[in-house]
Design a protein around this nucleic acid. Sequence first.
DNA 1: ACTTAGCACTCAAAGAGATTGAGTGCTAAC
DNA 2: GTTAGCACTCAATCTCTTTGAGTGCTAAGT
Lengths: 341, 341
Amino acid sequence: MDDRKLKILTAVVDEYIVSGEPVGSKAIMSHVKASSATIRNEMAELEKQGYLEQPHTSAGRVPTYKGYRLYVDRLMEQDPLSEDEKKELDAMLPEDFVTEKDLVEKASLALAELTKCATVVANSTPKFSIISKVEVIPTGKRMYVILMITSNGEIKNKVCRLEFDLTHEQLEFFDNFVKQNLNGVPLEELSDDYISKLTEAMGTYMMTLSPLVSELVKMTKELDRSVILKGQKNLLTCKDFDQTEIISFLDNEKELMDFIDGTFSGLNVMFSPEKDGFVIHNSSIITSPFSKGGRTAGALGLIGPMRIDYAKFIPYLEYFTSRISDMISQRDDVSDDDKEL
Amino acid sequence: MDDRKLKILTAVVDEYIVSGEPVGSKAIMSHVKASSATIRNEMAELEKQGYLEQPHTSAGRVPTYKGYRLYVDRLMEQDPLSEDEKKELDAMLPEDFVTEKDLVEKASLALAELTKCATVVANSTPKFSIISKVEVIPTGKRMYVILMITSNGEIKNKVCRLEFDLTHEQLEFFDNFVKQNLNGVPLEELSDDYISKLTEAMGTYMMTLSPLVSELVKMTKELDRSVILKGQKNLLTCKDFDQTEIISFLDNEKELMDFIDGTFSGLNVMFSPEKDGFVIHNSSIITSPFSKGGRTAGALGLIGPMRIDYAKFIPYLEYFTSRISDMISQRDDVSDDDKEL
DNA sequence: ACTTAGCACTCAAAGAGATTGAGTGCTAAC
DNA sequence: GTTAGCACTCAATCTCTTTGAGTGCTAAGT
């Protein structure tokens, strides 16, 4: 693959990203020093090799996903952020935050507004946190509320209804049992094994209290897998997409969960044809992980059309995730201090 | 307004509801015993009077909102529900529910699926409920969780961050204070007056604890005004609407809150031209209130195109709200029993 | 052997009639 | 007051033409 071809491919992608129209040979002349005829010949070859395609014979060229792949992996030059831009981005993040979930949610929203794309954030910090309080509160006939608070400030509650009322003694037992066996336990250590051992240890109380335990387990599972989608509106108004596809995508959150998996290892750019089962044609997904105290804690992702402005938006995304990492790690230090006191 | 005119108007609306196309004089002949020419003359008059309109000279007639108004108020015959249909509707409702919010939410979703419209539910039952527990739980440096549980099973929590840590004594004071002054208080009695009197009564503690109180008040306000929208997808796919209007409607929840107000007094059918400020052109909104123990407790609403199948859907809606009323009232009795014990 | 000017060719998009048909209003007869 | 009949209207659809951006190929130029 000679140098001029790469330059032409780059020019096609660059042009197409801004115009959204098929790019002709003349438009490339301002980027590459060669006549339109030469460029046409080169483009014909790029097409043979699968990097470009024509919507129809007499139209210009459009990058294929293979073309985008080469572009983002090797050709594109990212626009580095100026200090001013950094300040602007900082201004979009909250200075302070109450819970980590709050922070990532706000960052996600800001990114969505900035890029006019949808954003998604998978936050697995709760997984690394420890249970700091579990309480069971009776609230009516056979009704109980389970309250769980984790060290990262996340709170979760669940109402459950039992078959019969618990005696005072049973409640007290459960309370103590939880205090001894769950308080201070990292959520990620709550394997099914661990749980079943616990239930066994409850002995005669097991029968009556097991519904509570199973709700508790459900809660921990829900905590460590939270995926939030923002900027749905931007997908709906983007004319690169098929509306019905977007609607069915928004309708099944399940898919979201699935695709974000395995994107926790560095910047990642994926195209819909590469990700099979993903319904939105012509879309690309860019993800960047963030960490808490050196440990991967989640990922922020951008869902947009394939002709998204990679050069500009990738730096935005990476800056946001690095800021998130800083902020939540710093906060973590504080609460460590707290423990030492 | 003579009888035949009314029959013709009814026929036009009925036809238009199923076809969505302007209705011509011939189509009416199967409903009204008269020649197409006569019907045309009558329709011309109905148009003069503002009940019908023509998209263009050589097209059939379409009802105006004034036509719909007359139709729903006086002409339409509702399809009464058969026992079988009632059973089907019952099957869509949960047999049992944990919180009232759960129930109305599920009913709302079921109605949305059934009618392919959006549904909205304003639930003010929390307002009539009493505070059964308030707790403040420290969860980290200067971090506190306020937990509030109301008698109808609703739970709300809020994380707040204070400027300084509270002493054990301060916490205990707040705990007692809340127990004495808020536990058992109906939410609707928490007027601003009442609150400010309370804060004054806190004396020297006021300064330090007022952030907690203000969060608490916020929580009660959020509790008694919950509006839930379901079936957004149906609005997006309905071709009677302008997509951009739908998107901007979905984007500002505020509007939702506003329009549902004042619809708690019996079945209500509104058309977008009557409800100014409401962005969705060509839409109609049908609401029906539900009650808890004889007291209005909220309303369930249906948002659809103006040519919605009123005859069929109004009975659905009313059946649902009557079932909701039954179910939450019955449940209430149970918890009353509970108190007596 | 590569580059490029030139030319014939292609094809989507936009515009200009022409055609169709559902529906109307009006009139004159019943 | 009702209705059959007829001329008229107009959106929708189709066809035909024009336009123009863009191509591939060829032959001459470097």
